[in-house]
């Protein structure tokens, strides 16, 4: 699988609107000579960070999906369900569209990548904190799931109200963000994102045993000596960091979080999280790289919105797998 990941990474990097021969791509990274200087620049400062972002984003989103599906014992769970992505959208929408609406308060239309990331992170953590406050009062995970959906609807409603009153240019900017993109990150942002995702992965690895116990249900987990409250918080925080951080920096990317855990379970035919956690990360990264490669429309100058590609490629795959297996077990 690691081999497949490296292969996809290679394919992804060597394809793009400017066609660069594979040998030159190889040479550029391993100290050889490259025919044109501009190619070297494209590879190092555009394609490599983009490919690595795809790896981090895909792996992180897939892992957050796995955590949520196990925690909520629900095969439909994903980063969107807890309202985390919607929270990030609200943050982004407030910044992009709100700045024109409340021009008196935000004197300058200071919308750049960094402030956007901060706003979206703030939004996702606001929703996450609200969900956590509710989670401490509600014991039933099904209820928590519904509350997450409601938070999602509320934030979506705020966004559409904002969109209604905003001007076309700002609206376009917001919509562009909501398409999702793995290509706009600088090395510095990529470092930040990798840090966040790494914390999420470490928390998940520490929770592997608990995640397995949750496969039996919460009461059984409790009878096995699991500290329910503590472990639920650890898993929710990991999910929030993964989904919130990624959505903030790369936009809301659909499908990966929900679908990859299912695809991985089909391949490995196990429910053991010792296998699933690393497998899901790698598989998510591979799938994200493939989607991104496809989005580049190799040899053409156009780039499709990544969000559309993940859904177009991924949706039918999941439907096909489920129809074939006839049931959605997790």
């Amino acid at each position: 699988m690691l081999l497949a990941l490296v292969l996809c990474l290679g394919i992804n990097i060597s394809s793009g609107s400017v066609s660069i021969p594979f040998e030159d791509t190889f040479n550029a990274f391993f100290g050889g000579t490259v025919q044109k200087d501009s190619w070297q620049y494209i590879l190092w400062n555009y394609r490599l960070p983009k490919a690595l972002t795809a790896v981090v984003v895909g792996g992180g989103l897939a892992l957050s999906g796995l955590l949520m599906q196990t925690l909520f014992r629900n095969p439909l769970a994903g980063p969107f369900v807890l309202g985390i992505s919607s929270g990030a959208s609200l943050g982004a929408a407030l910044l992009i569209m709100g700045s024109s609406l409340f021009s008196g308060i935000f004197a300058f239309g200071l919308v750049n990548d960094v402030s956007l990331a901060i706003a979206a992170s703030a939004g996702s953590f606001f929703v996450l904190l609200s969900v956590m406050v509710v989670a401490s009062k509600v014991k039933d995970t099904m209820a928590l799931l519904i509350i997450g959906l409601m938070f999602g609807s509320i934030t979506a409603a705020f966004v559409s109200v904002l969109a209604y009153f905003t001007d076309a240019e700002k609206l376009q900017q917001y919509i562009y963000w909501s398409y999702g993109s793995v290509g706009n990150l600088s090395w510095r942002q990529l470092g930040l994102l990798s840090g966040i995702v790494l914390i999420g992965i470490v928390l998940s690895v520490l929770s592997i045993k608990v995640l397995n116990a949750f496969l039996l249900g919460e009461n059984y987990a409790k009878s096995l000596g699991v500290n329910l409250k503590k472990s639920r918080y650890a898993i929710i925080i990991a999910t929030g960091l993964l989904a919130g951080g990624i959505t903030a920096l790369a936009g809301p990317i659909a499908f990966i979080g929900m679908a990859v855990p299912h695809l991985t379970r089909q391949i490995f035919n196990t429910t053991n999280h010792t296998v699933l956690v690393p497998a899901v990360v790698i598989y998510g990264a591979i799938l994200m790289l493939l989607c991104d490669t496809f989005a580049q429309l190799p040899t053409s100058a156009y780039v499709l919105p990544i969000n559309a590609v993940t859904s177009i490629i991924g949706g039918p795959v999941v439907i096909w797998l489920l129809v074939r297996k006839r049931k959605m077990v997790f």
Partner: peptide
């Protein structure tokens, strides 16, 4: 957990 084990009526969450 090493003193008492339980068999409950609730279904096992993951039938897989």
């Amino acid at each position: 957990a090493s003193e008492i084990s339980m068999v409950l009526t609730e279904p096992v969450a993951s039938k897989n």
